[in-house]
Amino acid sequence: MQNRNSTAARRASGRRHPLASVALILIGLLTTGGAYALLSTTASAESSSDSSAAITEGQKLFAANCATCHGVNAAGTAEGPSLYGVGSASVDFQMGTGRMPLAFQGPQGAQKPPQFTQTQIDAVAAYIASLAPGPAVPDEKWLDGSGDAAAGLELFRINCAMCHNIAGAGGALTEGKYAPALQGVEAKYIYEAMVTGPQNMPVFSDLNLTPQDKANIISYLKFQQENASGVGGVDLGGLGPVAEGLFIWIFGLGAIVGVTIWITARPN
């Protein structure tokens, strides 16, 4: 809260403190978290049911691995945002996909092999969830791909495809950021990304896309990857016309030029 006041003071003087964006993220997360506290009974129920042993373990892991950037109390520093109200979903997503801890400060944290076991991640998640209410790790029933793929396709087209590409192949954003590919990403992480809005992804709260909507999107992606992508053969990464153009020049025309050389070469 102190952060917020200081930001206001800076703004009045017309200059932006480097902490301003961190503070804004904090405000954003608090607001989201607040909405969750009010609307998502599961979130609060789960966070209160976590065992205190896990929380203690999580706190230790946090202090050793995360506190450098996020602050000892997870209140954020110049290097990393506050984690109040980000919820266990955010921790599970960021650590589970290896994005956190960051390899280096860059435009965007990249996916890499996770550095912690799921038990350790759960412990940190429990600790963070104990600080302030936030979106929880999703229930298994939204993740099994049993939703309505047709509805999911429509929602995916409107809300996701512009950044992640219609085949989930990913795409470029501004200033070196990018929307990662969704092919092969676990359903849990897709759900968590939607509710928490990691990095520069917008938040798709339950007021925008209901849990059922999210389950439908996950079901469609599963359908697309398992059934639709290879119908006509190898899909060249789902990148669209650029990949197709390169393919025909290099392999199509390449093979045919090879044949022309054979045709006109004189046999010995």
């Binding site: 405000i27 954003g28 607001t31 989201t32 909405a35 429509e154 929602l155 409107i158 809300n159 809005g197 917008p202 938040v203 798709f204 709260s205 007021l207 925008n208």
Partner: peptide, 18 residues
């Protein structure tokens, strides 16, 4: 695409609606 109206309170900070 479903045409359901949007309440101002639905739009949390950081959200995007089409």
């Amino acid at each position: 695409p479903d045409g359901t109206p949007i309440k101002a309170s639905d739009v949390t900070i950081g959200s995007v609606f089409h």
